[in-house]
Simulated scan of single mutants.
Amino acid sequence: MSEVLAVFEQPNSIKNFLKRDSNIAFLAGGVAGAVSRTVVSPFERVKILLQVQSSTNSYNQGIFQSIRQVYREEGTKGLFRGNGLNCIRIFPYSAVQFVVYEACKKKLFHVDGYDRQEQLTNTQRLFSGALCGGCSVVATYPLDLIKTRLTIQTANLSTLNRSKAKNIAKPPGIWKLLTEAYKSEGGLKGLYRGVWPTSLGVVPYVALNFAVYEQLREIGIDSSDSRPPWKSNLCKLTMGAVSGGVAQTMTYPFDLLRRRFQVLAMGGNELGFKYSSVWDALVTIGKTEGFSGYYKGLTANLFKVVPSTAVSWLVYEIVCDSMRNW
């Protein structure tokens, strides 16, 4: 506390405080996450609707057709339903990832994260990415759970919603969903429902995202100091898109499980599925929906993840450079 108070007692102390490496990573990571998720919010919502519905529900006409359907039924607000909470969640989620990753570089492997002559090995990148992915899940999971439920509660998925017209007219808000989950689903356990399949998906996804991007950055950016800024930024966008696409495609089945476990308590039987464990979910999906069932909503997810990851890495790099040069 005394350290924070001292920041406001000395000239230029606020600037010096913000220019610390950990604070730069936290602020830049948070801003990058919030901006990138807002850009792709309509795809995020449709992806979740495709993931949690059964094969007989109404969102089966493709990505853009589903977006148009959401717009017809709920208007512009429907396309961004849950995005406010998503930004509240994604700021610390993304910030924690970048802070932990930079800390791993310096504290565990003694590599200067901003010196391009020093680089982590791919094994070190995967380990650091996995650790920051796990930390971000633990820190923000209850908000992710509520965001998912907020996203689907007004959608025309099944009798789950059609039988609750009152809730469609005025669905419960963030605080009510949080308190209901805590009170009726076993306290803290209820707020972390689905955290295991979420971790199975997020940890390798973040590990691959960081490892692929850092490898591409080592190849594509280190020799690009003479490029004009727009070419350098385009290169960063491309590398972010590739890293996000590769990571998400390889880990997607667990992202699907993550969403389904999060909404089980809302009426899994009516939505068309009910699982007792992660293994039971994997076996059941294979039997009832085939191999394609593991990748339901993948196309919509790639429409979200590829630009989102690209924007996230670009914004992170720009904010970091701006804060260091302030």
Rank of each mutant, 00 (worst) to 15 (best):
L27D: 02
G190Q: 05
K164S: 14
M250H: 03
Y205S: 06
T121Y: 02
V242P: 03
W196C: 10
F43C: 03
F64V: 06
L271E: 05
S136L: 03
I146Y: 01
F43E: 05
P228M: 05
L188Q: 08
K164C: 11
L150C: 13
V206I: 15
N233K: 07
W230G: 00
G30V: 02
R162M: 13
S66V: 04
V4N: 09
V202A: 11
T179K: 10
Y192H: 08
G245L: 03
S184P: 01
F127D: 01
M250S: 05
T140C: 14
R259P: 02
P172G: 11
F273A: 02
L200G: 06
V263T: 12
F98V: 08
K47A: 11
E73T: 09
Y295V: 02
K107P: 01
G267L: 00
P11R: 12
A265Y: 00
T288L: 10
G113P: 11
A165L: 13
L27H: 02
I221V: 11
A34Q: 09
G290E: 02
D321M: 12
Y275G: 00
N325Y: 11
D222T: 14
T198A: 15
A181F: 00
L216A: 04
L18P: 06
G186Y: 01
A28T: 02
N301T: 11
W230Q: 03
Q69A: 14
R162Q: 15
L5Q: 08
N325Q: 13
Y93I: 00
G245M: 01
P229M: 06
R81D: 10
K19G: 03
G286V: 06
L27G: 03
P172N: 14
T251G: 05
V311A: 12
T198E: 09
L234Y: 02
G173T: 08
Y71K: 10
A32L: 03
I221C: 11
S277F: 10
N209D: 13
F43Y: 11
F254A: 01
V7W: 07
E9S: 12
G173V: 07
L143F: 07
Y59R: 04
S322E: 05
S58M: 12
M266K: 10
V70K: 13
L85Y: 06
G84Y: 12
R260E: 06
K107L: 10
E180N: 13
V99P: 10
V31Q: 07
N16Y: 05
L50H: 14
K15V: 14
T148M: 07
E118L: 12
V203K: 03
W175T: 09
K287N: 07
P42E: 02
W279L: 14
C320P: 01
L79D: 06
D21R: 12
P142G: 01
N301S: 11
V40I: 10
S36T: 04
W313C: 07
D21C: 04
T56H: 13
F26Y: 12
R125L: 15
I318S: 07
A103Y: 10
R260F: 06
T76H: 09
E289S: 06
